[in-house]
Nucleic acid binder design. Structure first.
Lengths: 201, 201
DNA sequence: ACCCGCCACTGACATTTGTCATGCCCGGGC
DNA sequence: GCCCGGGCATGACAAATGTCAGTGGCGGGT
């Protein structure tokens, strides 16, 4: 029996995934969680063989939860399961020590398969996405540029961003300008969208 | 037996929802679809009692598919099932003749229940969301303002928007200014985010 | 010790943007 | 017929934005 934890913030899909996986005779759902902290706690409490974790979750997101699980409970293998196949997500998932990466577009049969492979010690990832992740290279943005872009997606003015980061307007403009250059955008809004698309935020 | 169609662009959650609903003894999944056009076609081909349709789908989106189904196949009742509980979505779903509206945050048991209620001719919707939808009133934007905002979410410059809509820069600025005023935003980026959040685009 | 990259800031500059007043055309309601 | 709202446009103006050059501090390599 493969003991599995499922973490996803949307109760409906979490339950649906659980009942789908529960139909498999060699898989047992031992716990569910709705956010990153609950996922880490559940791993500690139930020590599952495999944790299936969504990226988008309130509070601690799936990628940082995966990193914590990898550090604190190395016996539990992690599969990242996400809506968006963003190259940056794959890169960060691998850096966090995840053993699998699957997108929610994938055919349903693939999920149980991925769980079995990962439980057996193999790695599971989409070849096309892996190629894109490698070819596009790592995120070219510096820490500060990421901070500024993250604040920029809200849509506020430069002064808003500056205040929220305790910086000068000029500094924010410089970081934004540099980020715009690196992303090939022509506006900070476009730069923010591009960075978000690639999973760099 | 209640005959159900499931439409969702993410194969994994579509399959998961299907296997969860399939566990119910009085529910039978007769078809699945990955986009709006396929959903309409599947309704025509299998004449299900209930169609469970996601909003976000490539091509024809779930709300317009629901409207088509309501017009062309009135015997099939529609439940809109969405990730985001945006007031505008609920309003448009009701306008399209949907009989139910459920968010993916809802507890899993609620789904089968909603299917049964809707099949019985009742309406199912989240009271809190309905209240918000009514209190926030309808979308205050004119058609053109919506067009311009939709083009603005990409992040391009005013000139980009103007060209993509075959308008003058000045006209675009006027529409944007008016949309910014109506949304209470201070930037076109913020206005676009707000409008998207409310489901006005 | 030296160089280099990142961070933070300043000041200046040319554009872009948001706002406002004004005008014209059209279609719908009274 | 008249008025009103919406779409489109122009022109003008203040403010915000993007770009550039230059300064200094800090820390990590070699």
């Amino acid at each position: 029996m493969i003991r599995v934890l499922i973490a996803d913030d949307q109760a409906l899909v979490r339950g649906a995934l659980a009942s789908m996986l529960g139909l498999e005779h060699d898989i047992e759902i031992v716990a569910q969680a709705g956010d990153g902290d609950a996922a880490v706690a559940a791993v500690a409490a139930h020590s599952p063989d495999v944790a299936l974790i969504d990226v988008q979750m309130p509070g601690t997101d799936g990628l940082t939860a995966a990193a914590r699980i990898g550090r604190e409970h190395p016996s539990c293998r992690v599969i990242i399961c996400t809506t968006f196949g963003r190259p940056g997500y794959l890169a960060r998932a691998m850096a966090a020590g995840a053993h699998g990466f699957i997108v929610k577009d994938a055919p349903p049969e693939q999920l149980a398969d991925a769980v079995r492979r990962v439980a057996a010690g193999l790695r599971v990832l989409d070849p096309a996405l892996a190629a894109e992740s490698l070819s596009h290279g790592a995120c070219p943005l510096t820490d500060r540029e990421r901070d500024v872009l993250r604040a920029a997606v809200e849509g506020g003015t430069i002064r808003d961003i500056a205040r929220s980061l305790h910086l000068t307007d000029g500094t924010v403009r410089n970081h934004l300008s540099s980020a715009i250059g690196k992303t090939g955008a022509r506006t900070r809004a476009e730069a923010a969208r591009i960075a978000e698309d690639k999973g760099w935020l």
